[in-house]
Design a protein around this nucleic acid. Structure first.
Lengths: 217, 217, 217, 217
DNA sequence: GATGAATGAGCTTTCATTCAT
DNA sequence: TATGAATGAAAGCTCATTCAT
């Protein structure tokens, strides 16, 4: 094998190892952030959870905040993929329901990610990442909502007049609020006490929405 | 005046002074928590804001955590009063809308209280307050929801059959989810980007709900 | 004793205690800075030397650099007093010699202070104190040199024409250089190997200077 | 070619390569030490500047300290060469002045080397190099002073009686002190404020010295 | 009761040094 | 020989909590 090919192969493996370690640190960070909060989490705890030394974390991430940033960005990317897959798999008439429930299920299975998003509003202040990061994250979130929004539009029969843009946006926001609120109530343990599940809330919201969409046409 | 009566009077005044100081500390804490966040706030800042020495805070609250526990309990009490007042002031047909919007406005004007509530699920652990406190807070939250729930029941015309208990509960949860979700989206800055306000979301939800309640009767 | 007087007395004692502690910390810092250098010195070492906890240092000085700044400013103030005293005590004809030797002796007895001054040129960069501090320190140093300069002027017989300002300044700088250089060589152990003492160097410099001053008149 | 000769030749080349790399590292270290200070410099920066990996530095120098030990030793060797060259180039009557000014200029152009020298007295402790190193460096410094001392001796007219050994030593020390002190004042920024330059101080010192030497003869 | 000086564990981050590859 | 990822011991600094006055 020629030297440069060997070199490339070695570099490739190194890259892979590096990516793997980054991911391991990220996993540990996700767990610790979720458990202790953005401020409560310590680098020591994250490093310990990842089974490495403190200094090693800094070989991959320049600061605590950047860990959080990457975590959140990755989470939103995963969510988007999750939503797209769910919508694609469903029959046209079920796509809205499938998307909404996928949104719900995603966070239900990864409650840590839900908390991650909450810190956006308050915990991220001191860091210097906000300007571009915020735009990036907002963009990703919007893309997620767009998946739902598109499914909503397809819910209207093709022979009927298409949905008014304002109404579409309003209904998307309502759906997002209902879903987010349901998750919140459930995760903070407030739903159990109210005798309901978040999933039912979401399902009911979508059912009513579909009825209205049909009636409007 | 007999000695024991004098004693009681003196004790009463002392109690009053004590309660007054507790409240002053609480006010200061509310302000500092709001300004610096739950983790960013320091006991020194709170004491300074209250115009007393650090040590004095410990004469009234055993730990920093208990301060925001009390703050949260007070917040829910305030919310309940706020809801009751709004509902009472409104005409029978507007009571549900008034209650829901009051819920929204309360947190909109006190966004920190919203975060306070969110921390319930995760941030309050280290202190030993959780078991009973959690029950207390849940109870208060339920009472708040009950105010909305009652208004919902009164929304149904008296000549029509009363609302099914299950349906009442389901609609209450949905309303809570929609309201909470709207607040969340707004506070984390996600609503602005979606071109909507939380208030509109809540109003729309209630309007649709009222329509359905009328149709059901 | 009236309450306000008692209060004042108590405050006075507190102030005294505070000043005393500040001084103790300063002494410890002087020792550690001299032993380990400006960067080598650690707050932990300083605190340990002072017999207090790390956090306590911060009750008196907001940062490591401010400790250094106060140390240096105090040192220069002491030097000035030392020089003035020496010159005042001496007979008119001996004042220049007395001042120069006092300069030398001061640092000979407090070699730490000599090192303190050396850090000025390089170690103080990151801190935010430099602009005013540097001016302050320069001012104090100039005042010290002025004491020598004045003595130099008085060395010229009153019936002779007074010293040219330029020459006075040049001779002052030369004296400062000779004295400083002698101290440096001695403190870094280079003089021992050269078989001489700094004091002799200074004395010789002054003797020659006096001869020249007399010859000039 | 016999095997052992081949071996020697190969070894010789290896040695040369090794020496070359050592020098490259040293150059890098000089630059970084100059830019960031003795404590501010990091091994990473030095390695990066030298274009090699961190670990590689340790193949040539056992510790960071030994790097600046070698740097300092090299600096003194350079100084000696610099002085010799300057003295050699000058006419007999100007050799003392040339040597003294060369001393001054050398450090003026390499202020970091001056600090390097100052650290000898205090900063070099942790490493285990001091005992022999200190002797070595002292020896080199003496050789430098000897260059000046020799020039001083040659300043005396050959027909006059040669200089007394004690006086020669004393004048050498005085010159060293004046030059060192002038450099110190200049480097720490104290000369600028006194309205003079180190060079002028040195020149004046030598002029007076030469007058005295002539008068003595 | 009220004070605030004192504590010291804990934080994030850096970096000289080691060692498997 | 050369590499650079990994280590972990510090560093400066903060702050909840205690306690002598």
């Amino acid at each position: 094998m020629p030297a440069d090919l060997l070199e490339k192969k070695r570099t490739g493996r190194r890259e892979a190892v590096r990516a793997f370690k980054r991911e391991a640190i990220l996993q540990a960070a996700r767990k610790i952030f979720a458990r202790d909060g953005l401020d409560g989490a310590t680098l020591r705890a994250i490093a310990a959870e990842a089974g490495i030394a403190v200094g090693t974390v800094y070989l991959h991430y320049p600061a605590k905040e950047s860990l959080y940033a990457e975590l959140l960005a990755g989470s939103l990317a995963d969510l988007q993929k999750h939503l797209r897959d769910a919508v694609t798999r469903a029959m046209p008439d079920d796509q809205l329901m499938a998307g909404a429930l996928a949104f719900y299920d995603f966070y239900r299975q990864r409650p840590d990610d839900l908390y991650l998003g909450l810190y956006l509003g308050q915990g991220l202040r001191p860091a210097g990442l906000t300007p571009e990061l915020d735009r990036l994250l907002n963009g990703r979130l919007i893309q997620c909502y767009t998946v739902l929004s598109d499914a909503m539009r397809r819910q209207v029969p093709s022979e009927a007049p298409p949905l008014d843009a304002d109404m579409l946006r309003a209904e998307t926001v309502s759906l997002a609020a209902a879903t987010g609120g349901a998750l919140m109530l459930e995760v903070t343990g407030r739903l159990k006490v109210l005798g309901d599940t978040g999933k039912a809330v979401v399902r009911r919201h979508v059912e009513l929405l579909v009825q209205r969409l049909r009636a409007a046409s």
